[in-house]
């Protein structure tokens, strides 16, 4: 009975590491706020602002999931379920949008 408790993530995280992740998350929040003020859509390409904001959000999420939610030390199944849920979200987005983006093309353009 005693042996499996050592397998836990006791040793993986300590308070400085938690605080480090926290600092990254705060930095990400500030970064996303600041970059949202720049007109990347105009200077780079349309959608650049959203893309950057989502990239930062994904990074933040990855840190929360890996370290706060201990996915990093979790069994494969947990990894799989985390990845699969985003894969299914992607299916929903992609297959819905493939309708909207191709709908009525050629009809409404001026």
């Amino acid at each position: 009975m005693a042996e499996h408790h050592e397998e836990h993530q006791h040793e993986h995280m300590n308070i400085p590491k938690y605080v480090g992740i926290f600092v990254i998350l705060v930095a990400g929040t500030i970064l996303t706020y600041v970059t949202a003020q720049w007109d990347l859509d105009g200077t780079l390409f349309a959608g650049a602002n959203t893309l950057l904001a989502l990239l930062i959000a994904f990074t933040k999420m990855t840190f929360v999931m890996l370290f706060f939610m201990h996915v990093y030390w979790s069994p494969k199944l947990i990894w799989l379920s985390a990845v699969a849920s985003f894969f299914w979200l992607a299916i929903m987005f992609a297959y819905t949008m493939q309708d909207y983006l191709t709908r009525g093309s050629g009809v409404f353009t001026t």
Partner: peptide
């Protein structure tokens, strides 16, 4: 099964290209 739902919507106004894929 998650990739085919659009075949319920062939005539309900979805894009013809989406219809082809589904």
């Amino acid at each position: 099964g998650f990739l085919v739902w659009g075949h319920h919507m062939f005539v309900s106004g979805q894009s013809i290209y989406a219809g082809l894929v589904f």
